[in-house]
């Protein structure tokens, strides 16, 4: 997994301009696939396209050794502080599993 950094901003989505200095001189950094659950919700009322997999958790993962967080999906039970690992990226979604 990668994060993009400039002026202390670390994000999983590459920005066009740095919100601090305004340049596009944004650095790329490889990071661990591990993280911890910062928060989550179990979605019981999904939009039509996710109806078949509900209920499912949307998780906000605090990535390791960076300030960046990423939003992903995790099936099963989960709590804040759980250690998780990126399982795969599928249809544009980061799918996590508990370690």
């Amino acid at each position: 997994m990668k994060v993009y950094t400039c002026c202390g901003h670390e994000t999983v989505v590459k920005r066009i301009y740095c919100p601090s200095c305004g340049t596009s001189d944004i650095q790329e950094q490889e990071i661990s696939d591990h993280g911890t659950i910062y928060s989550f919700t179990k979605i019981h009322v999904p939009p039509v396209e996710f109806a078949e997999i509900a209920p499912y958790n949307v998780v906000l993962v605090q990535l390791m050794n960076t300030t960046a967080k990423v939003t992903g999906r995790l099936m099963g039970d989960v709590s804040i502080g759980d250690t998780v690992e990126l399982d795969r990226v599928e249809n544009g979604a980061y799918l996590y599993k508990k370690v």
Partner: peptide
């Protein structure tokens, strides 16, 4: 990637509430 993860509009506030 948030939308593709299945995050909904209410879901954002669910994540916020747990934290």
């Amino acid at each position: 990637n948030e939308k593709h993860a299945g995050l909904t509009f209410p879901g954002f506030f669910g994540v916020l509430a747990h934290r």
